[in-house]
């Protein structure tokens, strides 16, 4: 009979579980890791390596085990479970952090309206069969109408009315709609709408088609290639109400008459848009004498550049 384990257990009862070190050990309980920052004892290291390594490791593990046994526990059928905290040592991840999934149009709407997510059961109860059947898929409830042997036909139905086909088409339509919405959600998540993308492709292909020496005139036509459509000219009708006619005429006159707007046009940017009101600034800088005088003053003599740039405005 092997009693050595019992004897050693008895002996160790009196052995201490306390570890004394010059520098306290760094314990990361979350990663089950202990680091001993004490410098190695060189004499012990040289005298007996294995013994030294074992004793260092024992001290470290003893303090780690003490930390583990001090953690809060929860009971389980296999013995007490210590609840580990989050690790403190940072290790590099193996994959980048998962990106949050962009919400679908419905999810956005539901969030705005405060609609709770409801899990839809995959099975529905069939009152006739008195059992639970699939909502879709094998023997799905959604194909009930197209598979039943007798269907009521509306009174005003055409002669070639096929009720099975009718309900099948409706189901296929629903599926197609869902697919389309999913695609649109995906496109929205990428940042461009499908119609925008389509337009962009069409524009690029149209440009490529006229980018040959003959501007596309003698190119081979591909099958299914559509004609390039340019901008259609639009003309206003000759007959219009007197009110609109009046307005139009007045707007033309306003363009001819008002020198205010034209002047701002000549300045480069319209008065509302430009940050600096150039006319006002020149007037202020030349103390009311105008741009020509300012040009003389700055240039000393008669610099042609200054004259060209300020001359027109100074004449006002």
């Amino acid at each position: 009979m092997d009693v050595s384990a019992i004897v050693s257990a008895q002996q160790s009862k009196y052995k201490s579980t306390v570890v004394e070190k010059d520098i306290p050990l760094e314990i990361d309980v979350g990663l089950l890791t202990v680091t001993d920052p004490n410098p190695p004892d060189e004499d012990a290291y040289k005298a007996n390596l294995e013994e030294y390594l074992t004793s260092t490791a024992r001290d470290g593990v003893q303090s780690l085990v003490a930390a583990l046994f001090a953690l809060p526990t929860k009971s389980s059928p296999d013995g007490p479970l210590a609840l580990l905290p989050k690790p403190t040592t940072a290790l590099p991840r193996s994959k980048p952090l998962p990106k949050p999934k962009p919400p679908t149009k419905w999810e956005k709407f539901a969030a705005a309206k405060g609609i709770q997510h409801k899990v839809r059961d995959r099975k529905v109860f069939d009152e006739e069969k008195q059992e639970w059947v699939n909502r879709w898929g094998k023997d799905g409830k959604n194909r009930e109408l197209e598979e039943q042997w007798l269907t009521e036909v509306p009174a005003n139905a055409p002669a070639d009315f096929d009720p099975a086909k009718e309900s099948r088409d409706k189901r296929k339509e629903r599926v197609a709609k869902n697919d389309k919405q999913r695609d649109q959600n995906l496109a929205r998540a990428q940042g461009t709408s499908l119609s925008e993308k389509k337009k962009e492709i069409e524009r690029a292909s149209a440009m490529a088609r006229v980018s040959t020496a003959s501007m596309g005139k003698f190119d081979k036509k591909l099958e299914g290639e559509s004609k390039i459509r340019g901008q259609k000219r639009k003309f206003d009708s000759n007959e219009m109400s007197t009110k609109t006619e009046n307005q139009r005429a007045l707007s033309i006159i306003a363009k001819l008459d008002g020198s205010k707007k034209r002047r701002t046009d000549r300045d480069g940017a319209p008065a509302e848009e430009s940050v600096v009101n150039v006319r006002k600034a020149i007037r202020h800088a030349s103390k009311g004498k105008g741009g020509v005088a300012l040009g003389h003053k700055v240039g000393g003599g008669k610099p042609s550049g200054a004259r060209a740039s300020f001359g027109k405005k100074g004449k006002r």
């Binding site: 290291y45 583990l68 389980s76 013995g79 210590a82 609840l83 580990l84």
Partner: peptide, 29 residues
């Protein structure tokens, strides 16, 4: 070496009776 032996933080509970072995890394002087 920590990543090799002790990496991954998937567990938040540890069975105390299940502690079996230790990997010890010691540097010489």
């Amino acid at each position: 070496l920590l990543d090799l032996f002790g990496g991954g933080e998937a567990s938040d509970a540890l069975c105390l009776s299940g502690i079996e072995h230790v990997v010890s890394v010691t540097l010489g002087p």
